[in-house]
């Protein structure tokens, strides 16, 4: 249990994960980049293009946007008293993924036997509140965003929602930006979705 009194920046949670050892440790520096800044515009466009792939479940293409050393983390949120210094479950997450485990998840959706997405869900990732930051390395950017996932399955049950904040570390690659680290902070301690057979 943490003894800190201030929560760490979201992206710092990656370093605390038992599986985060290989992830980049770069953090944001300075104030938000102006909306007119080219780096901000590129990051924003990257996020919007990525969202399209996630809504369309074009996961093979999505995988190519991830670096080989990616850490994809979604901690479990817990309700704790104000000032207790932590609001995620120590040592537990929903997603705590590297490229291999993400590739298995994608491979599974490509089989004909991933029943949970057959018939497929109708999904819409609504993203917004995009803020970007420089890092100590000019080839890396931090992009913050909020995401609301609307997911509807079948014709009986109510649609399900997941609301989350994200912090991404983007790395400049030969053909554009790649995702090197993503930390997803769900806004619920108890998810109201039957599973996370989705990406956020």
């Amino acid at each position: 249990m943490s003894t800190d009194t201030t929560p760490p920046p979201i992206g710092g949670l990656s370093a605390r994960s038992p599986l985060g050892a290989g992830a980049s440790r770069l953090q944001r520096t300075g104030r938000t980049l102006p909306f007119g800044d080219r780096r901000h515009q590129e990051a924003h466009q990257w996020l919007t293009d990525e969202t399209y792939l996630l809504d369309a479940q074009r996961y093979e293409e999505w995988l190519t946007l991830l670096t080989e050393d990616i850490h994809y983390l979604m901690p479990v949120r817990v309700t704790t008293a104000l000032g207790s210094g932590y609001d995620t479950s120590p040592g537990m997450a929903h997603f705590d993924e590297d490229k291999y485990s993400l590739s298995r998840r994608v491979a599974r959706f490509l089989t004909e036997h991933a029943w949970t997405e057959d018939p497929p869900s109708r999904m819409r990732h609504h993203i917004g509140n995009v803020r970007t930051f420089a890092t100590a390395d000019p080839d890396h950017l931090i992009a913050e965003s909020s995401v609301l996932l609307f997911r509807s399955r079948g014709d009986v049950n109510e649609p399900a929602l997941v609301s989350a904040g994200r912090e991404d570390l983007l790395r400049r690659g030969p053909d554009g930006w790649l995702l090197a680290r993503r930390t997803i902070m769900a806004d619920e301690a108890v998810l109201r979705m039957q599973n996370l057979a989705v990406f956020l």
Partner: peptide, 30 residues
């Protein structure tokens, strides 16, 4: 650490076994 990774890949909210189990059980309940 690796056992935790094995758990996440198979069971729990994101587990690849559990995802298909729950789909069946929701359907059955309806």
């Amino acid at each position: 650490a690796l056992s935790y990774k094995a758990y996440l890949m198979c069971f729990g909210s994101t587990g690849m076994f559990e995802q298909d189990d729950v789909e069946n059980w929701v359907s059955l309940t309806n």
